[in-house]
């Protein structure tokens, strides 16, 4: 069934690229969730990961480096009926686009952000990305990296994302489940996918992943009450500062209103008539707007 989600475009990633695992998991998730192809939008950034928008038979908006989140936010706010997912690399979303990454969490718009985290800028020959560890020297670097890495899960947590998960690109079944959970979650989500780059990252290899990650068991990510949130965040923080990276759903915070609810509170029209559902003309002319009632304070 997942095959019907393939577009006619040949995925031009390197053989063995972690992006293939993410693509497979995504198509499986979409298929199992019986998503309507017309109402689903993949918004992607620039880099190898950004091309994924072309490889799936659904709407694909391949945007600018670092800017997938603003485009996705505009699409979702203007038409909340669309299901929107962002795909981007670690350089894209956490380097050039970090401001937008934080802003999406603060707004809690119903968008899942999938970070293809391979630690390098692959398409430009392997420079260090914001998630590459300090002291690490991948083969495209002249010297070991002297910059501290950012942890996407922790940054996401502090930004207000209400769904946090981490998967592994070659663990397709597990990743598919994470995608399904993230897409079903109401609110902004981060799904970090550890993704080997066989061409440029000779450090984060499959072997490194098996030695440095573990699958979450008996971990309870769900927070239903505001007063429980701080405690859960502390647990996440100490887990993330452990030796190994956790794979699985790390946090699901149901205590915050999503953006759509926040806007509706200020303007009740929005829920039923978001911008995409509003008529703007009447027989080729502007609507019969009353100046007295709409622009009263300007009338003299």
């Amino acid at each position: 069934m997942a095959a019907e989600w393939s577009s006619d475009v040949w995925p031009d990633w390197c053989p063995g690229c972690g992006n293939f695992g993410i693509l497979s998991a995504l198509k499986l998730a979409l298929s199992e969730l019986r998503i309507n192809k017309r109402e689903f939008v993949i918004v992607s950034g620039i880099g190898c990961s950004g091309k994924i928008a072309h490889f799936v038979r659904t709407n694909g908006v391949h945007t600018l480096h670092g800017r997938a989140i603003p485009f996705a936010s505009g699409i979702k706010v203007a038409n909340p009926e669309l299901k929107v997912v962002v795909h981007g690399g670690d350089g894209d979303l956490l380097g050039i686009g970090m401001g937008h990454f934080i802003a999406l969490g603060r707004r809690n718009i119903d968008i899942l952000v999938v970070i293809h985290n391979n630690g390098v800028y692959g398409l430009t020959k392997g420079q260090a990305s914001p998630t590459l560890g300090k002291g690490v020297k991948t083969k495209g670097l002249a010297f070991p990296n002297i910059t501290e890495p950012v942890n996407p899960i922790l940054l996401g947590m502090m930004s207000g994302y209400t769904f946090l998960a981490r998967g592994y690109a070659y663990s397709v079944e597990h990743l598919k489940d994470l995608l399904k959970a993230g897409l079903n979650h109401k609110g902004a989500g981060v799904l970090e996918v550890i993704q080997p780059c066989p061409t440029w990252n000779n450090v984060t290899t499959t072997e490194w992943v098996s030695n440095n990650t573990f699958y979450l068991k008996d971990w309870k990510p769900l927070v239903e009450k505001k007063e429980d949130l701080a405690q859960k965040m502390k647990e996440v923080l100490s887990m993330e500062y452990g030796d190994k990276r956790a794979l699985g759903i790390i946090l699901e915070d149901n205590t915050r209103e999503v953006y759509q609810e926040r806007v509706t509170k200020l303007n009740e029209i929005y829920d039923k008539y978001p911008p995409s559902k509003q008529k703007i003309e009447s027989n080729g002319r502007i609507l019969p707007i009353s100046f007295e009632k709409t622009f009263e304070k300007y009338l003299i």
Partner: peptide, 11 residues
Amino acid sequence: GMAIGGVLTGV
């Protein structure tokens, strides 16, 4: 970027 997103939905 957001404004472009809005336009793509027909708004």
